[in-house]
Structures are given as structure tokens and as C-alpha cells.
């Protein structure tokens, strides 16, 4: 009798365990549309296996939720729409996610490793008392992840021992999820999700008609060799002709040539386009960390000793002020 009870409870336990293999993807969006990295994150979620739910949280975000419900492979969309989520503050989203976790017991909570995901997920992990895993480039199994350390100069494979896995994924390492789905939308748990000590004031987003840096197929970046912000016009002209995004090295950003959000590197954006053209960039370790997974790398630099040539598929040793206009004309 006793043994049969044991067997029974063991079976229940394993059924619960199977059910626990479920993932919550936290969607990134601007209320009207999903950010492209959400689709990359969904692909990563599908590699974990099991059920996928998507949380859309924001203020007036029904359009984004509608788009999320059409994502492939999603079983349900949880919608939390309210004024307390203005500015998507981690201080207000965290208690919502914890409440959602308490109700549904996900095995994994994941988001893209963007500024949004990086600010939010560790706070959630701390509240759940688990060690988060950041900027994952590969998922080997539900508990084994691959990430880079030391500016991409070493590859760490780790096994997460915590029961709940809180993970951010590198968008460029997972292709965007394609196809259509038809998930039902339900309300996320409700509660007091105001952030008492934090107030969102404003956002100033750089406006550009060019493709978004992290999702662009071609990226053209300028470095210190551009000499001034005005000279970046040379790159904009080439970028517009090629349908490319424009990026920059830290040196170019620090010198004030372009805005900070264009920085490619260890501490800026990580890009992996089909084609990366580095113009007047020497190729410091910290810059390479942000672009060395690009399919084809082209370097234009007048210094033949520049380290960028060690990773470039095609290097052109030339004065960029002559080479870039010529390239623009001929391409």
C-alpha cells in the first residue's frame, strides 16, 4: 500500500516536471509593434522545447499583443495593459512577472539581450532567487547554455543549477521565428504594479530611415579615422545606396562624431550582418566583440598594420576619403 502511494506520487511528480518545461517569453515592443529581437528570442524559446507563452506588457499595447498572438509556436499571449507600465520600468514589470510566474510555474523566463532585457531580467531573477544567464548564444539543452565572456574571446558552456532559468539571448545568434500562429490572448495576473520610487520622464530616440542596426543585413561603421561627424555623411551616402545601417566604434562615439546608440562592440550593440564594412576602424578587441560574427567583413583603413585586417575577408589599404566615394559610385 505504502509503496503504491509512493509510486503514484512519483508519477505525479514527473507529470508536474514535464508540465514545468514551459517558457515565458517577455516581448519587447513600442506598444504598436514588436521589436525584431522578440522573434529571435522566440526561436531560442523553441529550442528549449515545451510550451511557449508570450507576455506583452505596456500601456496601450493591444496592437503589439495582436501581433504577438500571430507569432508561430506560441500557445498563449498574456496581456498586461495599464498605466503603471508607462515607460516599461523594470520596477513595475518585475512584480508582474513574479505574479505570472507564481501562477503558471514556468521553467524558463527569457527575453532578448537588448537594453530592455538586460535591465529587466536580472531584477526578475533576483526576486525569484535564481542566477540569471545573460546574452546566451546557444541553447544545448533546457539547462545548458553557451555564452561568450572576455569580450567574445572565450566561449563558456554552463549548466544552470537553479530550478527556474532566467535567460537573455543574443538576437544575432538565433534566426527570427518565421510563419504564423494563432494563439489565444488572456489577461495576465493583476495587482498593484506601480513602481513607488521610480518615475519615467521621457525618451529621446534618434530618428533614422535606415534599417535598425542590430537587424540590418549590411552595416557600415566608421571609426576615429573619419576625423569628424560631418565626414560620416560619406558613410550615410554609401549606406543609403546599399540599404545599410550605420554603426560606429567607441572612438568615433567618444569623439562626438555620432550618437552613442550607434556604438558597435562589447559595451555597445552586437551585430552579425551579412556584410560589415569597417571604415577607419583599427579593430580593438572591444570593437571586434561586437561584429566578428558578421558573415563577410570588409575593412578600409590606410594603416596596413591595423588589427581589423586580421579578421577582414577583404581588406583595402587606402585613404577612406578617396575609397568610400569611389565605392559609393561603383557599387
Amino acid at each position: 500500500m505504502l509503496s503504491s502511494i509512493r509510486v503514484k506520487s512519483f508519477c505525479n511528480g514527473s507529470a508536474v516536471f514535464r508540465r514545468l518545461q514551459s517558457t515565458l517569453v517577455i516581448a519587447e515592443h513600442n506598444n504598436d509593434a514588436l521589436a525584431p529581437i522578440t522573434r529571435n528570442t522566440l526561436t531560442a524559446a523553441s529550442k528549449i522545447g515545451g510550451d511557449i507563452s508570450v507576455l506583452v506588457v505596456g500601456e496601450n499595447c493591444s496592437k503589439a499583443a495582436a501581433e504577438a498572438s500571430k507569432l508561430p509556436g506560441v500557445s498563449k499571449v498574456l496581456l498586461a495593459d495599464g498605466g503603471s507600465f508607462k515607460g516599461l520600468l523594470p520596477e513595475s514589470i518585475t512584480p508582474l512577472v513574479v505574479a505570472t510566474q507564481n501562477q503558471f510555474n514556468f521553467s524558463h523566463i527569457i527575453a532578448g539581450a537588448s537594453a530592455f532585457g538586460k535591465a529587466l531580467l536580472p531584477r526578475i531573477a533576483a526576486k525569484l532567487d535564481v542566477s540569471p544567464v545573460t546574452d546566451v548564444v546557444e541553447i544545448k539543452s533546457p539547462d545548458t547554455f553557451v555564452r561568450t565572456i572576455y569580450a567574445g574571446n572565450a566561449v563558456l558552456t554552463l549548466k544552470a543549477k537553479d530550478k527556474i532559468k532566467v535567460v537573455t539571448v543574443r538576437g544575432t545568434s538565433f534566426p527570427p521565428a518565421e510563419g504564423n500562429g494563432d494563439a489565444k490572448t488572456e489577461a495576465a495576473p493583476t495587482g498593484d504594479f506601480n513602481a513607488p520610487g521610480t518615475t519615467f520622464v521621457s525618451q529621446e530616440l534618434a530618428k533614422s530611415d535606415r534599417p535598425e542596426l542590430t537587424a540590418a543585413k549590411i552595416v557600415i561603421s566608421g571609426g576615429r579615422g573619419m576625423k569628424s561627424g560631418d565626414n560620416f555623411q560619406l558613410l550615410y551616402t554609401l549606406a543609403d545606396k546599399m540599404g545599410a545601417a550605420v554603426g560606429a566604434s567607441r572612438a568615433a562615439v567618444d569623439a562626438g562624431f555620432v550618437a552613442n546608440d550607434l556604438q558597435v562592440g562589447q559595451t555597445g550593440k552586437i551585430v552579425a550582418p551579412e556584410l560589415y564594412i569597417a571604415v577607419g576602424i583599427s579593430g580593438a578587441i572591444q570593437h571586434l566583440a561586437g561584429m566578428k560574427d558578421s558573415k563577410t567583413i570588409v575593412a578600409i583603413n590606410k594603416d596596413p598594420e591595423a588589427p581589423i585586417f586580421q579578421v577582414a575577408d577583404y581588406g583595402l589599404v587606402a585613404d577612406l576619403f578617396k575609397a568610400v566615394p569611389e565605392l559609393t559610385e561603383k557599387i
Binding site: L89, F200, V201, Q203, E204, L205, A259, N260, D261
Partner: peptide
């Protein structure tokens, strides 16, 4: 932030 700057 990714697209620019934010004030809180």
C-alpha cells in the same frame, strides 16, 4: 537605451 536616451 537602444534607440537613444531615456530619463527617469
Amino acid at each position: 537605451i537602444d534607440g537613444g536616451l531615456e530619463t527617469v
